[in-house]
Amino acid sequence: MDRTVRAWVDGWVLSRGAAPPVVEPWGCTIDMGVDGHVARHVFGAIDEDVEETAVRKVAGVVTGAGVWLKVFRDPTVVGGWLGEGWWIDPEPGHLMTLPLTTTPEPTVPDGFRLRTWSRGGVTRTMLAAPDGSWAARGQLAPTGATAVVDQVETSPQHRRKGLGTVVMHTLQRAASEQGAESCVLAGTPAGRGLYESLGWTVTAPLTSAKFTG
């Protein structure tokens, strides 16, 4: 399995409280046990190394709704390998990485409140708006030399205010303090611009597909 993919899997499992990954010849299977997200099959190769035969084989034996595939290749390619019953996320994601160097101290906009805490091995940070409502959040799961950034979100009412940068700087500093040397995340097209402005680079495209039955 590609080292970056494995680091992301290990951190994602910790971040989401999922079952430990079951290693397969083509990648791994992760049980979630949630309605609409029962399990996910994550392929361990990226780009041209992803084998069409492996994807077809794994997808072909899925019969239950709510099972996901995570394939690190362009969806225009992966889509042609899947049969009926598969929904493909129209917004392809990206596997992104960042070598940890010096991260600036977060600058919280006036009136907003930042709080960060750790529990169960996961560090979470949040920003509350001046009126006390939720403004932004994110979390971090360290797995040794690599830390996984996960579930970074900003309220639609508070975008374009630099809150995403505050969240990312807070998590990156926490990763460094916990001994990580690099970070990895699976980002959406909406977040890619923010991450790249902070020095993150794209390692591979990410196709997310769900079996709907």
Rank of each mutant, 00 (worst) to 15 (best):
L95N: 10
H94A: 09
W68M: 08
E48T: 11
V149S: 10
W68P: 03
E196L: 00
P20Y: 05
I46T: 12
P92D: 07
W8L: 07
V34F: 12
V38F: 09
G111P: 09
G213A: 12
Q172T: 05
P106A: 05
A39N: 07
G138C: 06
F72M: 01
L163M: 05
S176I: 15
A45G: 07
L14A: 02
A147F: 10
R3N: 10
G164H: 06
W81H: 04
P106C: 04
I30D: 02
T76D: 08
K210H: 12
R113C: 07
A129K: 02
S182Q: 12
K210I: 15
G121C: 00
E84T: 14
D47A: 08
W87I: 13
V108A: 05
K161Y: 03
G60Q: 06
W12T: 13
M96F: 02
V58Y: 08
T146P: 12
G17L: 00
K57F: 02
V13H: 04
G27N: 10
V167W: 13
W8I: 03
G132R: 06
P205H: 12
S155R: 04
A209L: 02
T143E: 15
L127N: 06
A180N: 10
V77E: 07
D74V: 08
A19G: 08
A135V: 03
V166T: 02
V22W: 01
R137P: 02
T97A: 10
G64I: 07
T53Q: 04
A39M: 14
V148M: 07
T212P: 01
A186V: 14
V78N: 06
G120D: 01
G64S: 14
L171C: 08
V67Y: 09
R6F: 06
E177R: 15
K161H: 07
R40E: 13
H158E: 10
D35P: 03
P75K: 00
F211S: 00
W117N: 07
L185W: 06
A128N: 12
M168W: 11
V167F: 05
R16K: 15
R137S: 10
I46G: 01
D49I: 07
T165S: 08
E48F: 02
G213E: 14
W26V: 01
W200E: 03
L100R: 15
A65F: 08
P205D: 01
K210Y: 15
V61R: 15
S208R: 15
T63C: 02
E51D: 03
M96H: 05
E105C: 09
G179N: 04
A128K: 08
G11Q: 05
T123S: 01
T165L: 14
V62G: 05
R137L: 11
V5Q: 10
T63E: 15
K70D: 05
F112N: 07
W26P: 11
D89E: 15
T29K: 09
